[in-house]
Each structure stands twice: as C-alpha cells, then as structure tokens.
C-alpha cells in the first residue's frame, strides 16, 4: 500500500467524520434551536441568549472534545509505537493519575471553589510533578522497561494518595464531587478551559508529531533504530514531555477519560498498514471522532441524568477492545 493512497483512503473519511460530528455536537443541547438559528447565532454574534449558548456552552464543548480526543489518540499511538506494545496507553506514565490527584486535592481543600482555574491549575501541577518523578526514576539513559516500571510506580502512588484523600474526607459532598469529577466530562466547560489547555496541547502535539521517523525505525527494535541514526534518549524525552503536556492538559479540564488512547490506535492500525508514523495522525483524527461521538451520545442517551463521558468511553471501549483481542487470537491460531 502506498503512502498517498493510505492518506486518501483513511485520512479523508476521518477528516470528514470529524467535521460532521463537530457540527452535530454544536447542534445538540437542552436549548432547542433549529439548524439555521444555531448557525446564524454562532456567526452573527451579538448578545442574544442563542449566541451565548452557542459561543459559551456548545462551542467550547465541541472544541474540547476534538482537542482532547486528538490528544489521547495521538499520545496512545506514540506510546504504543515507542513501547512496541498494543496494550500501552497514554496513562501508563502516570500523568493522568497524578493530574487527577492534583484536581482531587483542589476540590478537597476548597481551592477549586475559591477560583475558577484552581482545579485545572492544581491538576497541571500534579501532572508536572509526576513527569519529573518518572524521569528521575527512569534515568536519562534507561530503556523502555524502566520507563514502564517508573510509570507504574507513580500511577500506583497517585491512586493510593487519591484514595487516601477520599478516605479521610470529612465532607461527604466533597467526596461525591471528587468521585463525579474523576469520571470525566465535558459538560459546563467554558472557553477559558479551551484557552488554558490549548497552548500546552499544541506544544505536546508538535513534540509527538515529530516522532514518526523514530517510531518507524523502532519497529526493528532499539538496537537497530539507534544504528539507523535515531537518538533514543531524545526520542524518549520528547515522548514523555509531549504525552505529559497533552494528557495533563486534557485531564486538567475534563477529568480522566479512559480507553480512547488504547482503542483508537488499535482499530486504525490495520487501516494504515501498521506503520507507526502514519498511525500518529490517523489516531489523532480517530480520537477526535471517538470523543465527539461519545460526547454526543451522553447528551442523547440520558439527557437529564448527566451521564459521564469517561463512563461511556469505558463502557463502549472495553467490549470493543475484547472483540479486537478475540479477533487477534483467531488470527494467531
């Protein structure tokens, strides 16, 4: 399969799906508005309630779904490519768990209630600390195995401390708020959240998108890749910082959303001829599609009950993943 026909066969449908779902996401919500009204409200501007709903509620929600979905898909593809393991996912290096711990502490201490950006900033601080910790534990010249082990250690510590906060929480309201926040959601986010996450995500996307060549070479193992001129230490640093930027920023504004980074690269791998560099952009688009779909679904399935996005992605993602495992098992036999 040549590269150009992979582009047209996979990339164009994914771009089209992203655009269509983005528009659909803009049209769905409790405020019933017709298609024409919605669009004119969005572009005409002004201070009408319709314009406010479009610009301040629906637009940030759809933008965040695209940004976070693309981030999770891209980081998942990069992580799987680096570790040469289809079971790797962006949360593996402990960033999402630590960002969640930062957010939980912000809710518990009241920081989240005292000013709007208290929670996301605390989550970003958690992500930053975890990255420094993972890099210190894995060492500058360590292998992919030391990175996994360091990530598992940091994830476990973050999970334990999160449980400790819940355990000792004197306030049942804070505890339930923590539990709901951790399920992940895009409801009631504002453009402030978009502007907070965007710079970090753009930096992370740039770092991760630059990994294609190195990940292709890693198909043949670390020794062969290094002998083909790939600087593995630099590649790993770009991977860890890039993943931390996109996943940290995503978790900070939307909570923990699982399975996207694991399932999307897995589904798209056969469609791009398994080539890690092609899988990077395909997974970014695929992640955006999956998260837009999931966020539309939570609004359509139980509009009154605030179904959480992270719950839905896991409910849909886990059986999908099982199906893929069964398919893989059949092929091996």
């Amino acid at each position: 399969m040549t590269r150009s026909n992979t582009m047209t066969r996979v990339m164009l449908p994914l771009i089209a799906a992203t655009l269509v779902l983005f528009c659909a996401s803009m049209l769905i919500g409790p405020a019933r508005m017709s298609l024409g009204d919605s669009l004119s409200a969005l572009f005409a501007g002004g201070e009408s309630p319709m314009a406010l709903v479009m610009r301040e509620i629906r637009l940030p929600r759809a933008l965040l779904a695209v940004m976070i979905g693309a981030s999770l898909g891209l980081a998942g593809a990069a992580m799987q490519g680096y570790l040469r393991n289809p079971l790797a996912e962006p949360g593996l290096i402990g960033v999402s768990g630590s960002a969640a711990l930062g957010a939980v502490l912000a809710i518990q201490t009241g920081l989240a209630a005292s000013f709007a950006l208290g929670l996301p900033l605390a989550a970003l601080a958690g992500a930053l600390i975890s990255v420094l910790l993972v890099m210190a534990l894995a060492g500058p010249r360590g292998t992919s195995l030391t990175l996994i082990l360091a990530g598992i250690a940091v994830s476990a510590l973050a999970a334990a401390l999160t449980s400790l906060v819940l355990n000792l929480s004197p306030n049942p309201f804070a505890a339930s708020e923590i539990v709901f926040w951790m399920m992940g959601s895009l409801a009631d986010r504002s453009m402030t959240h978009v502007w907070l996450a965007l710079p970090l995500m753009v930096l992370g996307w740039a770092l991760l998108a630059g990994l294609g060549r190195g990940l292709d070479a890693l198909t043949l193992g670390e020794d062969a890749a290094q002998a083909m001129g790939i600087r593995l230490t630099r590649l790993r640093l770009m991977l860890v910082i890039g993943t931390a930027c996109v996943v940290g920023a995503g978790t900070a504004v939307a909570g923990a959303i699982g399975f996207v980074g694991l399932v999307v690269p897995h589904i798209l791998r056969p469609l791009v001829g398994a080539r890690p560099s092609s899988l990077l952009w395909a997974s970014a688009l695929g992640g955006a599609v999956m998260l837009l779909l999931a966020d539309i679904a939570v609004r359509l399935i139980l509009p009154e009950r605030d179904l959480k996005l992270g719950v839905l992605t896991a409910i849909v993602g886990a059986p999908l993943f099982l199906h893929l495992i069964l398919k893989l098992r059949k092929e091996r036999i």
Binding site: M1, R84, R213, D216, A217, L218, T219, L220, G221, D223, A224, A227, M228, G229, R269, P270, G273, A274, R275, P276
Partner: peptide, 28 residues
Amino acid sequence: ARAVAWMPQAREIAWPVTVEMVVMLGRM
C-alpha cells in the same frame, strides 16, 4: 548510519508492516 548498517541478533519486527516497508526502513 550512512557508514555502517547493523543487523542485531534479536530479530524484532514489532508490527505487521509489509516486507517492503521493513526493507525500506534501511533507506531511512
């Protein structure tokens, strides 16, 4: 990488890429 090619003992091919692509990696 332009002066010496190295074939390690561990014969690792991580993903189901085509044989042509494996060989093309040598041109990187």
